[in-house]
């Protein structure tokens, strides 16, 4: 029971936009710490987060946040900080005024507001912009201001929707660190397309696809899953189209006459370096129909490498039958 009071329990949640089903029977438990939501555009990440932030009604299922059912919207709002994917603030107000306004709406007393605002502005590196009007901020600064407002009332649950989009690398790292600190005694849900952010911060992740929960687990499980499926090889430029057709290429580095490609495949190379010798079934990853080209899969000089999070994510999508649209045909 005590555990239930410290986590978000989502069970069998359906959500429709008119006829379109945006969440399909989502079942998830999110505990303390950082939780990453991954998924392609339109997967339903924002929809799930908005539902948790009481901005949407689900059509079926149960959600409770720290033991409070989601229908008690007021209580939920009191303990939740939300950074929307797309937002702005009153353009003619100053940064400080906006935060002060939102703090008032959260019912914070004046002294506390002042104290937290200056502390948070320092943490998101906006102290110098305290008196600037919101309309004069750059995109990244606005996003940082958004982070500050989400943390303003010291929420137990923090929901941030693509918070790092548009931040420069320095600010991104700064922000990741901030989130990790915040997550020490809180639930933080983060959605992102930048898999590197997840790798650096999250313990647990979930992958959504087309409204369905595709995968959930820890980052190391995800990596483990893709182990031995990631290769690099140096190939002549002329072979590139074929490789792109046959494998999921996750990276390439062009040299003078050759290309170093990084790719995923279920094929297990008998002749590749490493210890994965022919194990049972042999299957090649092929996109498009099989055209009887028997030479596929056998790339000379390919060797396994340790998967990174991005590889693992792609592999996971592929493994669950999601069609991955690769490079140009």
């Amino acid at each position: 029971m005590e555990q239930k009071n410290n986590c978000i329990v989502i069970s069998h949640v359906d959500k429709y936009y008119g006829k379109k089903q945006a969440l399909k029977d989502v079942d998830l438990t999110i505990g303390q710490g950082m939780f990453g939501l991954l998924g392609r555009n339109g997967a339903g990440k924002t929809t799930l987060m908005k539902t948790l932030a009481t901005l949407h009604e689900k059509q079926a299922g149960e959600i409770s946040v720290c033991g409070i059912p989601i229908s008690h919207a007021r209580e939920i709002r009191g303990i939740t900080g939300y950074l929307p994917q797309d937002f702005s603030m009153y353009p003619n107000m100053t940064v400080h005024e906006c935060l002060d306004y939102l703090g008032t709406l959260s019912g914070m007393p004046k002294a506390l507001r002042q104290q937290r605002i200056s502390m948070l502005l320092k943490r998101v590196n906006l102290s110098g912009k305290k008196k600037s009007r919101v309309k004069s901020l750059s995109g990244g600064m606005k996003r940082r201001l958004g982070i500050a407002q989400a943390l303003l009332h010291d929420p137990r649950v923090l929901i941030v929707d693509e918070p790092t989009a548009g931040l420069d690398p320095e600010e991104r790292i700064r922000f990741r660190n901030l989130l990790c600190e915040v997550a020490e005694d809180r639930i933080v849900i983060l959605s992102t397309h930048i898999v590197g952010d997840i790798e650096a911060t999250c313990e647990n992740i979930a992958i959504l696809n087309d409204g369905e929960l595709l995968w959930k687990g820890t980052v190391s499980q995800l990596l483990e899953n893709a182990k031995g499926k990631v290769y690099t090889a140096e190939i002549p430029v002329s072979m590139l189209p074929r490789v792109k057709r046959d494998y999921i290429v996750t990276g390439m580095l062009r040299g003078e006459r050759t290309v170093t490609v990084r790719f995923l495949t279920d094929w297990e190379y008998g002749n590749a370096e490493g210890d994965n010798l022919a194990a049972g079934e042999v299957k090649a990853v092929r996109r498009g129909e099989d055209n009887g080209d028997s030479s596929h899969g056998l790339l000379p000089g390919a060797r396994t490498v340790m998967p990174n999070c991005e590889d693992a994510y792609m592999y996971c999508l592929h493994q669950h039958g999601c069609e991955i649209v690769g490079g140009e045909e």
Partner: peptide
């Protein structure tokens, strides 16, 4: 219309204050 025009709606919607108060 100001909240909507400023795209600030969801920031305000997710605050604790009741609709009556706002």
């Amino acid at each position: 219309q100001l909240d909507k025009r400023a795209r600030m709606q969801s920031l305000i919607y997710t605050r604790k204050s009741s609709a009556i108060k706002i």
